[in-house]
């Protein structure tokens, strides 16, 4: 029952946001997902969370990590280790470093917007594809948001979606449960499962 309500809510929210984006926009679902995640995680001022999302995409961490840190990142997760087996074995930092630059924010820092943007690839554990497509896909999504931002109602609409979401009581769910539900209903996991089938 709850799942059906959530499904209906997300469908309605996506329809509202469709007014701001072109039909095949990459940014729509990531923006919706990260808005809801931040809304629930912080339980604070939603406008602030949305603004936070925008700043979240600014480069501000130290990007240049030591080789040991990068190797450790690739070795820690089995799927990552598998995908970059040859490079790890030969300590091919020339290949690993650019892949790390793309994968670290998605897999390491778990940035919700990027996780949603690369949800299909993540579900299939296709880390090489994320590394290859990271720059152009992120650039395109950011350009879409930039274009949508010209309509000032975008942030108001997102705020309203977040507020409605909070008022419907799903904020009581644990982060894990909510993430799983959202991912499943927004199709972020289903695509991967379908691929497996």
């Amino acid at each position: 029952m709850e799942e059906k309500k959530l499904q209906a809510f997300l469908k309605q929210s996506a329809e509202i946001l469709q007014d701001f984006f072109p039909a095949d926009a990459l940014a729509l679902i990531p923006l919706l997902y990260s808005t809801l995640i931040w809304a629930v995680k912080r339980k604070g001022n939603l406008e602030a969370e949305v603004s936070g999302l925008r700043l979240w995409l600014e480069p501000e961490v130290v990007d240049n990590k030591p080789d040991e840190f990068i190797l450790d990142f690739f070795e820690k997760q089995q799927a990552l280790q598998e995908a970059f087996k040859a490079e790890i074995k030969s300590r091919d930092m020339k290949s690993l470093r650019p892949a790390f630059r793309a994968l670290y924010p998605v897999v390491g820092l778990e940035e919700p917007f990027l996780q949603s943007l690369f949800s299909e690839e993540l579900a299939r554990e296709d880390f090489r594809l994320i590394a290859d497509q990271f720059d152009w896909k992120l650039k395109q999504a950011l350009e879409e948001i930039k274009a949508a931002e010209k309509k000032p109602e975008l942030w108001k609409a997102l705020k309203k979606i977040g507020e409605s979401f909070m008022s419907l009581g799903w904020a009581w769910l644990s982060d894990d449960e909510l993430r799983a539900w959202l991912k499943s209903i927004l199709g972020m996991e289903r695509q991967g499962e379908e691929e497996e089938e």
Binding site: G44, E47, A48, E49, S51, G52, L55
Partner: peptide
Amino acid sequence: LRQEEATAFYK
């Protein structure tokens, strides 16, 4: 340390 909320107020 409520950075995101601070951002909204700066805006």
